[in-house]
Amino acid sequence: MRDEEPAENISGGTAGGGQSAPFDPETAGTRAETIVDRLGELYWTKTYGGRDAFECLVRTVLSQNTTDKVSQPAHDELMARYGSDGGPASGGDTDADLARALADADQPELAETISSAGLYNQKSKRIITLAQRICEEYGGEDGFDEFVREGDPDEVRSTLLDMNGVGPKTADCVLLFAGGRGGVFPVDTHVHRITRRMGLAPAEADHETVREYLERDVPAAKCGFGHTAMIQFGREYCSARKPACLDDPDACPLAGHCDQVGVYPASGDVVDPSETV
């Protein structure tokens, strides 16, 4: 196990939790758990929770349809201007409520602040709408944080999905990174691709079906790490167009656990697993 979390494993970030979670492939009860445990031998393992729920929601909205590399600066700029560190939009108040600051934000100014994240007009309007709802229904970020941490998980997820612009992955990320909820396995494009490519879920499965398979087959305490580790594995080894196994089977550390659905080393072709059905 590495001593430090890899820099690229940023879905949880340095604020995403802090307790190491040891995994052992020899004791895994399912194939999916074995793969997550093998990833635990590659990457720094941790449990998640503890992030501010509203900030986590904002950060996830910023990351939609873009990469962490470009959404992170947008998040940093937003927090510098509107966050509780006493930024200009907070009037220097270090106790400022982020949700209230964003609910009252000037939309063009917010759009300019988060412009590096792409789709900034759409995202700025979405963030302001979310902030206004959270202020109206929960009194601000503290009330929302309490709801996410202590509310019934199904009710929290349903409420999040009812919010404008919040899809299943965003809702699950808030439950995981803010609420610290066990058994939550957010499914992004990397997880969706890898799970079907490996044969852990049906080739034609949509994101929700993949989530159901993973949350069924991976122990609750390992789901959070499984999410972040699969993202990193997808970036390093199992990319959409050029998976490591395409030219050299030994180049992939999970080669012995993968069905290679949609990957054809003999011809060099790679297709989405759904196209093999």
Rank of each mutant, 00 (worst) to 15 (best):
Asp104Tyr: 07
Asp104Phe: 13
Ala105Lys: 13
Ala105Gln: 13
Asp106Tyr: 15
Asp106Cys: 14
Gln107Glu: 15
Glu109Asn: 13
Glu109Gln: 09
Ala111Leu: 02
Thr113Glu: 05
Thr113Ala: 15
Ser115Met: 14
Ser116Asn: 10
Ala117Val: 11
Ala117Pro: 15
Ala117Asp: 05
Gly118Glu: 10
Leu119Ser: 05
Tyr120Phe: 09
Asn121Gln: 12
Ser124Trp: 13
Ser124Thr: 10
Lys125Gly: 14
Lys125Pro: 14
Arg126Glu: 03
Arg126Met: 15
Arg126Thr: 14
Thr129Val: 07
Thr129Met: 03
Thr129Ser: 07
Leu130Gln: 08
Ala131Met: 11
Ile134Asn: 04
Glu136Gly: 15
Glu136Lys: 06
Glu137Met: 09
Tyr138Trp: 12
Gly139Asn: 11
Gly139Leu: 10
Gly139Asp: 13
Gly140Lys: 06
Gly140Leu: 10
Glu141Ser: 14
Gly143Asp: 07
Phe144Arg: 06
Asp145Pro: 14
Phe147Tyr: 15
Val148Asp: 04
Val148Thr: 15
Val148Met: 07
Val148Pro: 05
Gly151Gln: 09
Asp152Asn: 07
Asp152Gly: 07
Asp152Lys: 03
Asp154Pro: 02
Asp154Val: 04
Arg157Met: 00
Ser158Glu: 08
Ser158Phe: 12
Leu161Ala: 04
Met163Ala: 04
Asn164Asp: 15
Gly165Thr: 05
Val166Lys: 02
Val166Ala: 14
Pro168Lys: 00
Pro168Phe: 00
Lys169Met: 06
Thr170Leu: 01
Ala171Leu: 00
Asp172Val: 01
Val174Arg: 01
Leu176Met: 10
Phe177Lys: 01
Phe177Leu: 08
Ala178Glu: 07
Ala178Cys: 11
Gly179Gln: 02
Gly179Phe: 00
Arg181Trp: 03
Val184His: 00
Phe185Val: 02
Pro186Cys: 09
Pro186Trp: 05
